[in-house]
Design a protein around this nucleic acid. Structure first.
Length: 279
DNA sequence: CCCCAGGTCGTCA
DNA sequence: TGACGACATGGG
């Protein structure tokens, strides 16, 4: 039988907002307010209870470490939030709405594929497409007597054609997916190299691939590589920055973020996104 | 039939 | 460099 792992929550942790805010796409909300999430090589069920996280998984190996790492539970967000509010008083109510919010550390390959699909798309559709790809090419996992499918790795997608991707409703992004999957399988692109690169180098590398522009590259570096000095400015962030700060132009927003949010600009922008999109 | 969604590409000046 | 239309798909 499956063992239960319990993790005591030391700092604030808002499981619901962290999971549902649009960082990740492969989860389901359960009736008991817990979540079932597919991450890396396993499926977990997680819920909050009496200041503890209760976790079940189909795979116990390193489960505690993997969950703590995935939800970034050891990072001091109090300090980050203090830094953000230091030069910008207007962001304080936004930060308060994001209390307990963590930046999830995702699989690099899954993040790249998901965020190429995210271009000019909405969260619901992205979720549907990413799940379809997983169901067709990912490893099947049984958990709680239900079938789940892991996100496929690059080798699993080696022979998937543009037409195949089109049939999975990726739209015009199909050729971009095929192209970068080929680069990874041929070894011209090694996703692990990016961990050792600085932000500018890694941005330049990523945007050299078709389908990855500055916004998608920023999301990849934020969500998979924990580079916080990027600017994932999407339509929602543009809206809130125009309403609250009277900043229309993307470059003006960047300028403001560099000046006021320093090395944590991406987290500030993520807070803005969350505050605006999730009302 | 319109507009919009975690934008990017190619083209033209 | 900067502006601008096209691009697949689904929902409001």
């Amino acid at each position: 039988m499956i063992n239960i792992i319990k993790i005591i929550i030391k700092n604030n942790f808002n499981l619901k907002d962290t999971v549902t805010c649009g960082q990740i796409f492969r989860f389901t909300k359960e009736e008991d307010n817990g979540f079932t999430i597919i991450l890396f090589d396993r499926v977990i069920n997680i819920k909050e209870e009496n200041n503890e996280l209760i976790i079940l998984s189909n795979k116990e190996e390193n489960l505690r470490e993997i969950v703590i790492n995935y939800f970034d539970l050891d990072r001091n967000y109090e300090l980050i939030n203090k830094t953000l509010s230091k030069y910008d008083k207007k962001i304080i109510p936004i930060i308060e709405k994001c209390d307990g919010f963590k930046m999830i550390k995702q699989s690099s390959f899954e993040t790249i594929i998901s965020y190429i699909i995210s271009a000019n798309n909405n969260v619901r559709t992205i979720t549907k497409v990413v799940n379809t790809i997983s169901e067709n090419y990912g490893e099947k996992v049984i958990f709680n007597n239900k079938e789940y499918y892991l996100f496929p790795n690059a080798k699993d997608l080696k022979n998937v054609s543009i037409e195949d991707f089109r049939n999975m409703k990726t739209g015009f992004r199909a050729e971009y997916l095929v192209s970068i999957i080929k680069a990874i399988n041929e070894g011209t692109l090694d996703l692990n190299d990016i961990y050792n690169m600085n932000t500018e180098e890694s941005l330049n590398l990523l945007i050299s691939y078709k389908g990855i522009g500055i916004k998608v590259a920023s999301c990849i570096l934020l969500f998979a590589y924990q580079k916080f000095d990027v600017f994932p400015i999407d339509t929602w962030v543009k809206k809130i920055m125009e309403e609250e700060y009277n900043l229309k132009d993307v470059n003006k927003i960047k300028e403001y973020a560099i000046k006021n949010y320093k090395e944590y600009s991406a987290i500030a922008i993520q807070y803005m996104y969350h505050a605006k999109r999730n009302k």
